[in-house]
């Protein structure tokens, strides 16, 4: 029953969960720090050295806050909302190849929880149901700001999913597989997809911003208009879940972008340096995380650079710019494939 494979998988799952949560936690810290730095401030620096314990303090604060459930809300759904948001956020990490094969105690393992032959679609599916957490929460709050936020979230996510899917299609056309592992493996060395699909990448990353509700597309929760949007009525750990989910999403989105376009765990000259395969694997993990961190940084960088879109601008960008562009990208890719074959 307990094959080494299974044990390894369990360990991996636990590890991935832990790392994900940890990174999400420290993303909040990173966010504040980076925001501060970009604004020539210092950011949190009181809790621990450089404020390194700030996330813990925030967490404790979240737990200690009073649980408020609005009177007129739908109780069950009100609680279900953040749970769903958290769950869907965590689900995607299951198919990300964290590294190449690693040999331990004579067994070879994949540093990936599961290799679906339709992994890319899995990502897509999980993203697409991610909106339920927001919608249910927003609706159950029985508050007009929450409802508006939820509506914005749903239409925004549906709109950008299309362009995202089209961008992915172009990628799939050039890679010829839907499996994340195979996509990653095909980018060995420095054959990253970003060089094949620059336009696709651009579209994808813009859509990724929209899908994670990050600035400049953070309309569902934009404070100036909707005083927090779908989580206006939330407090305590339920609010924490929502915020957490956003950072987890960001982390996962970074991981997906890294894997799809930036070679995943591959790094330049990996096979030319005469390293053992385990070393390559471990270095690969390190490189992957480096890429992920870069993208998390990138997310924040953008957030603190670009102002928020207006809602109609958002929709115009999605429907009138990104989708035609993505279709053009597909045609272009097709033409190139046709020409080179």
């Amino acid at each position: 029953m307990f094959t080494p494979e299974l044990i390894f998988k369990i360990v991996l799952i636990v590890a991935v969960f832990a790392i994900t949560l940890l990174i999400a936690m420290y993303s909040t810290y990173g966010e504040r720090k980076i925001a501060a730095f970009m604004q020539d401030r210092l950011g949190p620096n009181r809790a621990g050295i450089f404020g390194i314990l700030q996330p813990l303090a925030d967490g404790v604060k979240m737990f200690m806050k009073e649980e408020l459930i609005p009177n007129m809300s739908n109780k069950v759904l009100f609680i279900l909302g953040p749970c769903l948001a958290m769950t869907t956020a965590l689900m995607t990490s299951a198919i990300i190849p964290w590294g190449s094969e690693i040999t331990l105690f004579g067994n070879t393992f994949n540093l990936q929880i599961t290799d679906l032959n339709i992994g890319v679609l899995y990502v897509f599916a999980v993203t697409s149901i991610g909106v339920y957490g927001i919608m249910i929460g927003g609706w159950a709050s029985n508050n007009k700001y929450s409802l508006l936020g939820a509506l914005r979230a749903s239409s925004q996510m549906i709109s950008y999913e299309i362009a995202m899917g089209l961008a992915i299609i172009a990628l799939i056309m050039s890679t010829g597989t839907l499996s994340m592992r195979e996509i990653a493996a095909a980018q060995a060395g420095f054959h990253w997809n970003i060089f094949v699909q620059p336009l696709g990448f651009l579209i994808f990353i813009i859509c990724a911003f929209a899908e994670t509700n990050r600035a400049p597309f953070d309309l569902p929760e934009c404070e100036t208009e909707l005083i927090g949007g779908y989580h206006t009525e939330y407090s305590s750990m339920k609010l924490g879940f929502y915020l957490f989910a956003e950072y987890i999403n960001m982390f996962v989105a970074s991981a997906v972008i890294s894997t799809l376009y930036f070679g995943g765990y591959n790094f330049p000259f990996m096979n030319d340096m005469g390293l053992s395969s385990n070393a390559i694997a471990i270095l690969g993990v390190v490189f992957l995380f480096a890429k992920i961190f870069f993208f998390i940084f990138f997310f924040m960088w953008i957030r603190w650079t670009i102002p928020r879109f207006r809602y109609d601008q958002l929709m115009r960008l999605g429907w009138k710019v990104l989708i035609p562009l993505a279709i053009f990208n597909i045609l272009l890719t097709g033409a190139i494939i046709f020409a080179t074959n």
Binding site: F37, M38, D40, R41, L42, N45, I302, W304, T305, I306
Partner: peptide, 21 residues
């Protein structure tokens, strides 16, 4: 324009902080 903006913000990361503790 976006890239210009990003360049500016990036520059500020490394500039001297004006905060007085």
């Amino acid at each position: 324009a976006i890239l210009g903006g990003m360049r500016i913000t990036l520059k500020h990361i490394f500039s001297k902080k004006t905060t007085i503790s």
